[in-house]
């Protein structure tokens, strides 16, 4: 649990995928939230994950980020980094960032301070005590504030933001971390139509330089961003393909109608 050594150097993606999940199972009191699940995410790809409530999407993110330990299976970041040997901060430092389903920004801190804490830098205790923002880092924060449309609210307490703005701030915090893989759980819940469109644009602009996994219920939104879609059902992958393929798959139709 307390692997203190942070993985250093580059993530080895020489074989294509940046994230490997193989035969992963998680059970809660006998109930299988994930059941022998395998999933591969390529470097730079934008993958959408859909599936009915309780399919195990959030649990999957919990496993990748070290919050939940699987009973079985392996989870690798690139060819060499075994994520099951690392704890949450080490996984974050290795380059995997996460936006939670329920917005969990630091409500007592300002928008600016939320981004400052997320900023990719040395996060040891003493360096943090003596940390001073460089002008480059300030510019980086301003840039992200602009991207997430919160430049006017930079000194506002994060707790005072609207639900949609909190979602954006979460995404902004994710950007500040400059991760190689972004896990984004239900980004558009509670957003207005316009906000949803802007979120779609933002996520589309990210693919290529980083891998993004998006979990979302809003089918219209998924359709607007997805190249590849993975459908989860009862803790396993039901099918994978383009949005059209997936939507016309009779098993998928049955799962959604039966839901």
């Amino acid at each position: 649990m307390t692997a203190l050594a942070l993985p250093t150097g580059e993530v080895d993606t020489s074989h294509g995928p940046i994230l490997y999940l193989e035969g992963v199972s998680v059970s809660f009191d006998g109930f299988k939230a994930l059941n022998n699940l395998s999933l591969y995410i390529d470097e730079g790809e934008l993958r959408c994950l859909i599936g009915p409530n309780g399919a195990g999407k959030t649990t999957l993110m919990d496993v990748i980020t070290g919050k939940t330990r699987p009973d079985n299976g392996s989870v690798f970041f690139g060819q060499t980094i075994d994520l099951l040997k690392l704890d949450e901060p080490a996984i974050a430092a290795a380059g995997i960032g996460r936006k939670f389903q329920k917005p969990s920004v630091f409500e007592k801190l300002s928008v600016f301070e939320n981004l400052e804490l997320a900023l990719a830098t040395n996060k040891g205790v003493w360096p943090t005590l003596f940390a001073k923002l460089t002008s480059i880092q300030r510019e980086r924060i301003d840039e992200v504030l602009l991207t997430i449309g919160l430049i006017e609210s930079r000194w506002q307490q994060a707790g005072d933001l609207s639900h949609g703005q909190k979602q954006w701030l979460e995404i902004g915090m994710l950007l500040m971390q400059e991760p190689k893989v972004m896990l984004i759980d239900e980004p558009v819940a509670g957003m207005t139509h316009q906000e949803i469109e802007r979120t779609a644009q933002l996520l589309l602009s990210l693919q290529g330089e980083r891998s993004v996994i998006v979990v979302e219920h809003d089918m219209e939104f998924v359709r607007s961003i997805a190249k590849r879609v993975t459908v989860l059902h009862e803790g396993s992958v039901l099918t994978e393909g383009t949005m059209d393929e997936v939507q016309n798959d009779p098993r998928v139709i049955q799962v959604y109608l039966g839901d």
Partner: peptide, 26 residues
């Protein structure tokens, strides 16, 4: 200091602080 803000963040959202890369226990 920034450490002060991390401490406050731990008080309000301990798990979240870990996911942005801070060793909460330290």
């Amino acid at each position: 200091s920034k450490l002060g803000r991390v401490i406050t963040a731990i008080r309000d959202q301990e798990a979240r602080v870990r996911f942005i890369g801070y060793r909460v226990e330290l």
